[in-house]
Design a protein around this nucleic acid. Structure first.
Lengths: 215, 215
DNA sequence: ACCGGGGCTGAGGCGGCGCTGAGAACGCCG
DNA sequence: CGGCGTTCTCAGCGCCGCCTCAGCCCCGGT
């Protein structure tokens, strides 16, 4: 794994500790060097400080995700304001730990990250010319921003998360609405709403089976 | 998603807040009920308190993982000892948040969990220059996409699953249509439809025996 | 070459799926 | 309390996909 931090003492302690835990550790002491290594080599996980010389941690994560690198990233920071944490996660980091932290907890969180299926998704969903940002709750079609209501957004997000697959109406009811509930044609109505705002071709109907958004 | 906690006030606040964020929320007030729901239904994520009546959070996660349920779990607890956190993560939870917590951070962490890919898609059927994707319900001939109706697709799928073999009409009636049913020439009609869309050579006739699609 | 039967195809009816417009319930804000 | 936006129900309807039927074609056997 890769550890990026500018406090030499901390880095040394982490390297020794993580090595003892059985990890192979590379280190970098600033953002640019860390970004270079992370892009170059294929790590299993990255521990990344936020306050860094030459590109801060947020920038590094943003650039990594933009470059298609999906390696799990654990951010490390002294800043524990709720928006610091939320911003860090929303740019594409997978976990956030505030200094000072317990080494035991760090290792447990790293193990949790490594358990996850290898491919981690980018922070923003993109399918065809549709772009949806779950954190900002915004949607754009072919670069043009589109205003959606909450339910419309939830429906579109689920469809995009399962793009290139037919999604049944019952499945949509279960995940986008509450429980297996009543009958009715809510799903069809909301697909109609989305089509009016996004264009008819955005969502394909598969008669007798459900709907599909394709790349 | 599913929220499991025994403090009614907190649960209500979470349900309202998460619903406003566009999630569909189920709730349970004790461990056994939560485990039941989580096993039964297919949630996108679970928020789970550790201190619960009737099975604590650790037990619930352990049982879920043992049952093969891989839904992401975020543990919630007032206990912030380093070993509490590490234990929670090590039994299979994906994240751990200590009370009191910021709602903004909770939502950001949930979104980070949801970035996990939903599940791996098994495979597509390929015979000759025909490609059929059962999940997407799409068919392509020589790279060109072809639109098929439900019955046409079911018929083609059965033929492709038994490629390089002669498949009798009665067998097709039994498997693609319901029961041994009536007489008539449905099969021949639908083979005709397929040939019109895929090209005459796609399906060969074996006079007196049935049909065959070959590699 | 003739004839029988299995296979193909065009036309058509029917049932129901899915789309739409209108409007009722609800919460939020001023 | 009244307006607005969002969510959801309901009923109507168009059209698509499913299947039947009848006639023709073509293959194969004698």
């Amino acid at each position: 794994m890769l550890v990026v931090d500018d406090e030499r003492g901390l880095v040394d302690a982490l390297r020794r500790g993580l090595t003892a835990e059985g990890f192979a550790v590379d280190v970098a002491y600033d953002g640019a060097a860390g970004l270079g290594l992370a892009t170059d080599r294929d790590y299993d996980a990255i521990v990344l400080d936020v306050m860094l010389p030459r590109r801060n941690g947020y920038d590094v994560v943003t650039d990594l995700r933009a470059a298609g690198v999906t390696t799990p990233v654990l951010l490390l920071s002294a800043k524990d304001g709720e928006h610091d944490v939320a911003d860090g996660l929303d740019v594409g980091a997978d976990d956030y730990l505030t200094k000072p932290f317990s080494f035991v907890v760090l290792v447990a969180r790293i193990r949790a990250l490594l358990r996850r299926p290898p491919q981690v998704r980018p922070a923003v969903l993109a399918v065809g010319d549709l772009v949806l940002d779950p954190a900002a709750r915004t949607v754009a079609r072919a670069g043009e921003p589109v205003e959606l209501t909450g339910r419309e957004l939830a429906l579109l997000e689920y469809l995009m998360r399962h793009a290139d697959r037919v999604v049944g109406k019952v499945e949509l009811r279960d995940h986008v609405w509450d429980g297996p509930g009543e009958d009715g044609n809510v799903v069809e109505v909301y697909v109609g709403y989305l089509r009016r705002k996004l264009g008819r071709e955005a969502i394909a109907t598969v008669r007798g089976a459900g709907y599909r958004v394709a790349g």
